[in-house]
């Protein structure tokens, strides 16, 4: 029996190694045709054109822009929610609000994509005249709403883990609840809170459907969130939506893009994990 159990557990290693191997092996073929210097420095990504360019920068700029918008929405809202739930709300409303928020995390991303393209974008177009139908602003805002539950829930756990005698000490010095929350509890929980934010960021970077549906599919160096642009994930999905040309450079390019994505999320996860460990060791 123990052997069977071990094999089941070893599948996890096989899957991780499988992902890394598949992405790397196709990327190696890709980089045999496209110099890695061009990949990193070229400012155009046009694999479908006659004059093909393979610079990852436009895709990365799309990913960073949509992630930035998402964080601008989710960090303040998620943190305020966490502080409110952990420090201000009574136990009963906390026990109802937190699970309801967690329901948001279960909404399929394709539904969020529909929401971004057909509900949020028309609303934004009324506020910002000339906003194109596809834009990273709308995709980013909805992505932000999507990651609020992750940031709020994990930050709330971190805030609640701060021992009460720190709060009592602060109250004894005459501080108000708000001052205690922001100057005592939040700093004490900072590594857990930052870990939550990094995890939300990693979600945003890897999110595909919202940006495919609402963000546009034209890779370009994005300088403003009101522009349309393709993210790394959107490009992979876009190529897969057509007839996949197995074995061509275009086919290999989605694996090279996948490699960039894998490295990005790996870094984020390592940072989040390190911060989480530090926060666990705090008390």
């Amino acid at each position: 029996m123990e052997g069977v159990l071990f094999l089941a557990a070893a599948v996890a290693i096989a899957v991780l190694v499988g992902i890394v191997y598949v992405v790397l092996s196709e990327s190696v073929k890709f980089f045999a045709a496209v110099p890695i210097g061009d990949f990193l420095t070229d400012t155009r990504w046009t694999p479908l054109f006659e004059d093909a360019h393979y610079g990852i920068a436009p895709l990365l700029s799309g990913t960073f822009m949509s992630t930035l918008v998402a964080l601008a929405v989710a960090v303040p809202l998620g943190l305020l929610t966490a502080i409110y739930l952990s420090e201000f709300a009574d136990a009963r409303s906390r026990e109802t609000i937190k699970p309801t928020l967690e329901l948001l995390a279960g909404v399929p991303t394709v539904v969020y994509g529909y929401f971004a393209l057909l509900m949020v974008t028309p609303l934004l177009q009324r506020l910002i005249p000339g906003l194109p139908g596809f834009n990273l602003l709308s995709a980013g805002i909805v992505m932000g709403l999507m990651i609020i539950p992750y940031i709020a829930s994990l930050s709330e756990d971190a805030l609640r883990a701060v021992p009460n005698n720190l709060r009592d000490g602060s109250y004894a010095m005459g501080a108000t609840k708000l001052e205690t929350a922001f100057r005592v509890v939040l700093p004490a929980a900072v590594s857990g809170v930052v870990g939550a934010v990094v995890l939300g960021m990693s979600r945003a970077v890897g999110e595909t459907m919202i940006v495919v549906i609402a963000g546009g599919q034209q890779p370009q160096i994005v300088t403003s969130p009101t522009q349309q642009g393709a993210t790394v994930t959107a490009f992979i999905a876009q190529v897969a939506l057509g007839d996949l040309p197995f074995g061509t450079l275009e086919y290999q390019s989605i694996f090279a893009a996948g490699l960039a994505l894998l490295l990005l999320t790996l870094v984020f996860n390592l940072v989040a994990f390190a911060l989480h460990r530090r926060y666990r060791e705090a008390y």
Partner: peptide, 19 residues
């Protein structure tokens, strides 16, 4: 491996399946 897999974007599982 389990901890890292939980953070891998879903589209990369698609690339694994495709390749």
């Amino acid at each position: 491996a389990v901890n890292n897999l939980a953070g891998v974007p879903s589209i990369l599982y698609g690339l694994l399946a495709l390749g």
